[in-house]
Design a binder for these strands. Structure first.
Lengths: 339, 339
DNA sequence: TTGTACGCGTTATCAC
DNA sequence: GTGATAACGCGTACAA
């Protein structure tokens, strides 16, 4: 980093004090109109750019919000991050992004880093509940944390998320109601447990015995893993329907089925998660559990700024919890009632 | 932000000076083993987390790298961002992410913000050459900037990118060699001009007259825009082949064609860009220009750290320029020679 | 081995 | 209206 232009430089240039420059630059009424203009002119001429680091140190706030996201390959998480970044910018905030690869230790590390960087608040897609204690501590240290994913447990901080249990429940129920009894499940692994339990609950409520052999776990939300999962589940386990934790997984499975000459939904029904654009434009338009990224991120940002505005008060209150209920977007891939 | 634990707090706790604490915390040999341990213990007990802001102010470096990316909807850009973030973390750096929506004014604003935040370096997918002067100025102010996209012009700073001109050229040439004379082009808009000129050059070199009516511009790299573009180009303009600036556009077009009962590649050939996983797993596996995200981001990070290590020296030298040559990944969607 | 003093660039509190 | 002066938390000479 080279020597940048400071307020002191423009002060010297004009024979003023640093203080006057500082005030003039923020258009303080206490400064003479004339000097104010002169200061601003010189600032522009010298290409002065304020040093946010120094400002942050004295103001004790950085106007930076941290964002911790587990996976590259999950489009809803990325899109959420980007929508939120846009909204933050409009309020004069910037975003520091960290990824964890769904590793709970990386998550913990990311939390430390962001605290160290003095972020004013942070968004987090928690992978599981292992860092709950740390999050609670941070909350009680007056750092607003908005969790973007719920679990089968009391959230450690304020949260805004989709009810993924419910999503899996209605998806699996839908398949059951169509007459399917052998419903395979592609488990998204750690961080997707709610979907799994929703699936199990739906089976139970429809009198279907849960069979762990019909579940395959993957660690990546991509086409390939879906393709491989289908290859593993369908021929050996004779499933007639498949619920996948993400649309990419579902579409990978779809591809495998088509390559085998299977008809969808006649030979096998497929349901995905997140209702991505890719689901709608698939060769067999995919039934999918809708994830309202736009609404959710809007709500998350609103909550963040509410907490930020309440200063330290929020941390003595009960965490707020905003849950969006998913809807099943029904398309062709799950078809009609079996006989 | 509430009162956090400072070095001073642990100094008081132990009756030591702040200096001793500072040194002990960074394991200085100059501090007695015993006091060192005591300091570290108390630090842990008090849950001390160093204040990076204060540190940055004195060290004149933040260990933050800025990343400016135009579009949410472009998967290669997002993936590049994430791969780079991972590599930065390993070197103790964090990433500040900003998006521009391909708006040149936002891009300029983002550059200012990141300079103000004292980033040690920055990655940028430039949208066009409009901010070249600003970038040059930043470079001569000793800020390492690695551009992640090239243009039909001399880059303003060090750069690592795919040769997109060449990509479009080989793709369009391939179609021409298959006998196509009416090749439509879905133009990705600003920030994708190289692809357009590559397409034009290929036509010229194959004796095909360029017809602007066969080009449609979109501002989003998604299925929907591809679908609509196909609907606009194919029936009215009688194109027999379509080159799209992104795989999502191509896949949207593919969907439209299939819905119309057209055969691909027999009735229409389609080629995309970026060689996403979705291209490989499409109902008609898509021929696509490969984008080597992993290689490119590795190379970009290496270059960044080289510049960082050279301190201020780099800015007096010619910008380095690393260009990756694309290859055409040929699949079923463009088929064989027409008669 | 440990402590003192100063500086990083900015804002804030007081005088004048 | 403007200018000293202190403060933010930490790192680093230099002194003790």
């Amino acid at each position: 980093m080279s020597r940048r232009v400071r307020q002191e430089d423009i002060a010297k240039e004009l024979g003023l004090s640093i203080n006057t420059v500082s005030l003039a630059l923020k258009n303080s009424k206490r400064i003479n109109e004339e000097t104010r203009q002169k200061v601003q002119q010189v600032a522009k001429a010298l290409n002065y750019i304020p040093n946010s680091i120094a400002r942050s140190l004295v103001e004790k706030k950085t106007k930076v919000i941290g964002f911790i996201v587990p996976k590259i390959t999950n489009p809803v998480q990325i899109e959420t991050a980007q929508l939120i970044e846009r909204k933050l910018i409009k309020k004069g905030y910037n975003m520091m992004l960290m990824t964890t690869d769904s590793d709970i230790n990386y998550e913990s590390y990311a939390l430390d880093i962001l605290v160290s960087r003095q972020v004013d608040g942070l968004f987090l897609f928690p992978t599981n509940k292992q860092n709950q204690e740390k999050i609670k501590m941070m909350r009680s240290a007056h750092i607003p944390i908005v969790l973007l994913s719920g679990g089968n447990y009391e959230p450690a901080s304020d949260s805004v998320y989709m009810n993924q249990f419910k999503g899996a429940y209605i998806a699996a129920s839908h398949l059951a109601q169509l007459g399917h009894r052998h419903i395979g499940f592609i488990h998204g692994g750690v961080g997707n447990v709610e979907k799994f339990t929703g699936y199990q609950q739906a089976l139970m409520d429809h009198g279907i015995e849960f069979n762990p052999e019909l579940v395959v776990s993957v660690d990546n939300f991509n086409y390939e893993q879906g393709y491989l999962s289908a290859a593993e589940l369908i021929p050996a386990k004779k499933v007639t329907a498949l619920l996948a934790s993400s649309d990419y997984l579902a579409l990978g499975a779809l591809r495998w089925c088509r390559e085998q000459g299977m008809r969808v939904p006649e030979d096998i029904a497929i349901v995905g998660f997140d209702n991505l654009e890719a689901a709608q434009y698939a060769e067999i338009p995919l039934t999918s559990v809708a994830y309202r990224v736009e609404q959710l991120s809007t709500s998350a940002v609103e909550l963040m700024f509410k907490l930020l505005a309440e200063q330290d008060k929020f941390s003595t209150q009960q965490p707020e919890r905003i849950v969006f209920e998913p809807a099943l977007e029904i398309r062709s891939s799950c078809g009609f009632k079996l006989k």
